[in-house]
Amino acid sequence: MEFINQLLESTEINGQTATLRLLLSFFVGMLVGLERETHNQPAGLRTHILISIGATIVMLISIFIPQTFANFQNGDPGRIAAQVVSGIGFLGGGAILKFGANVKGLTTAASIWAMAAIGLAVGAGMYSISLIGVLVVLFALTIMNFFEKRFFKERTLRKVEVTIKKKHTNLKALKDIFKTFDVKINSTGFDRNVHEATDKITFLVGVTPFLNVQQLADELEKEPGIVTVLVEIIQ
């Protein structure tokens, strides 16, 4: 037990302290990686472990060089580590996927960046901060995810096109129907066909997974002057 305490308190980078920090880095990376893996994210278990270990190694090198080589006594240990903060953004960008108007992977990209910071902290021997950091990250990814889904409904974007005879156009009535079905209107487009005397109104809306599209279309068709109703998923 005394040996472990000595390793934890030691500021010297040697084989034993480096091994301890790399093992701890592997552990914290695995915790966050497992959470992302359960959500089928593009950056999962192995990615987070490698990021954490890589950042830890960079931090170990940053401390080891000025500590070991006399010619680098005035070196700044933070210079190499600082490149991780900016460089990890390129890797995080690869986890962000765009599906039409929908963007996925922002949370995973943020967890990658946070994991790199935690890895640097482990490499610097900031054990308490590292463990608190990984606990906060896990809390944000799990408990806050439940809170977010509970109080902020998950919505997907859909486009609803309604063609209606010009004299019967009533935007307020259409918006009231959307409100009844808990459909959030993001934007509204208007296109008038003079020759056919019709108006085509395009709604970009956010809908919940529980929306019954057929019932929504049936309700819209009840409005006077409705010619066609088109509902499609934005991909």
Rank of each mutant, 00 (worst) to 15 (best):
M1F: 08
E2D: 12
E2C: 01
I4T: 05
N5Y: 10
L7C: 04
E9K: 13
S10Y: 05
E12N: 08
I13K: 02
N14W: 04
A18R: 06
A18T: 11
T19Q: 09
L20W: 02
L20H: 00
R21H: 03
L22E: 02
L22R: 04
F26D: 00
V28N: 00
M30T: 15
T38Q: 13
H39K: 15
N40G: 03
Q41D: 06
G44N: 02
G44D: 02
L45A: 04
L45Y: 06
H48W: 02
I49R: 05
I49K: 01
I49V: 12
I49L: 06
L50E: 00
S52R: 02
I53F: 06
G54Q: 04
S62K: 05
F69S: 03
F69T: 04
A70Y: 07
N71I: 15
Q73M: 11
Q73R: 13
G78Y: 12
G78Q: 09
A81W: 08
Q83G: 12
S86D: 02
I88Y: 07
L91T: 03
L91V: 14
G94T: 03
I96S: 03
K98D: 00
F99N: 13
N102V: 14
N102H: 13
G105D: 00
A109E: 04
W113F: 11
G119M: 08
G119I: 10
G119D: 05
A121V: 11
V122E: 03
A124G: 13
L131K: 07
I132M: 14
V134M: 07
V136R: 01
L138N: 01
T142P: 04
M144L: 15
M144I: 14
F146N: 06
F147V: 15
R150V: 11
F151Q: 01
K153V: 13
E154F: 14
R155S: 09
T156V: 13
K159Y: 10
E161Y: 04
E161T: 11
E161C: 12
E161A: 12
K165P: 07
K167D: 13
T169K: 10
N170F: 10
L171K: 12
I177A: 04
F178G: 02
T180W: 06
D182E: 14
K184M: 12
K184D: 05
N186Q: 13
S187M: 07
H195Y: 14
I201R: 02
T202M: 09
V207F: 01
T208I: 09
L211N: 01
L211G: 00
N212E: 09
N212H: 09
N212Q: 10
V213K: 09
D218A: 12
E219L: 08
L220P: 01
E221Q: 14
K222E: 05
E223C: 12
E223F: 14
E223G: 11
P224N: 05
P224K: 05
I226H: 06
T228D: 10
L230E: 07
E232G: 05
I234M: 11
